[in-house]
Nucleic acid binder design. Structure first.
Lengths: 126, 126
DNA sequence: TACAATATTGAAAATGATTTTCAATAAGGA
DNA sequence: TCCTTATTGAAAATCATTTTCAATATTGTA
């Protein structure tokens, strides 16, 4: 999955391709770290100066909707985003406190079941 | 560990005992769910009407400092708190994205090691 | 290629949560 | 009881996010 592919998916879903969106897509796609909207803004503005912060928020919203990025919660400022679907991801979600944890790897099913058995957590999503 | 014990710890650490703090302590201590500052405010004000939201923030801050409560990240509004140290808790923390997950139970050590081995996550805290 | 319909834009204003400031008050040691 | 000083709540300030809106740019169609 390439950055161009993300743009293609935006277009396929009826969204227009603009310089602003390209800048945001290439920024988030190219990062290995979770980025806050402000960080995306700062970085993407190096590619496209006229970019507005509002547009960053709106584009991230759409990328999340298409499951191209994943929302992640930081200990402090909260709310950061990172490219989704890198590898095969497993997600543990606590329905009570809302915390999530996800792992990459292929043979974690037994593990998650084990955790569910031992702790009472239910595996809600996978 | 009782609510009175929390008050004692506040006092032992040089903090004064006030009606406002008592209301906050009893509220958070008595909840099995993670509560947002606003929720703590609403509930605690039933015990002590004159309570201010600002004081809730300040008291939560101190309780967290003393490790009596734990900050937890909600999917949406973020920032909620829950009593810490209920049972024997294990905490998984991802240093990259900042997400945490904690479990109760006693025999998860083997599990966390296993997870660490399989996923490359390092067990940072316990 | 030119046009027209309309999605998208950035700026500014609005909102909502959290933090800071400050003068009045209350806790707790002497 | 008195005195020092930590704590208080209200209001103002700050910061992130969302909404509003008129100007602009994209894309399908001719």
């Amino acid at each position: 999955m390439s950055a161009e592919n993300w743009l293609q998916q935006l277009q396929d879903n009826g969204y227009r391709l603009t310089a602003a969106r390209r800048a945001v897509v290439f920024t988030v796609y190219g990062s290995t770290h979770a980025l806050t909207p402000a960080q995306v803004y700062d970085t993407a503005r190096k590619k496209y100066r006229a970019l507005g912060l509002v547009t960053v928020y709106r584009t991230l919203e759409k990328l999340e909707e298409l499951h191209l990025i994943q929302r992640v919660h930081q200990p402090l400022g909260c709310q950061a985003f990172i490219a989704a679907g890198i590898g095969h991801q497993h997600l543990l979600l606590c329905k009570q406190c809302g915390q999530v944890e996800f792992f990459e790897g292929d043979d974690l099913d037994a593990l998650t079941h084990s955790i569910a058995r031992k702790t009472g957590y239910q595996i809600q999503e996978h």
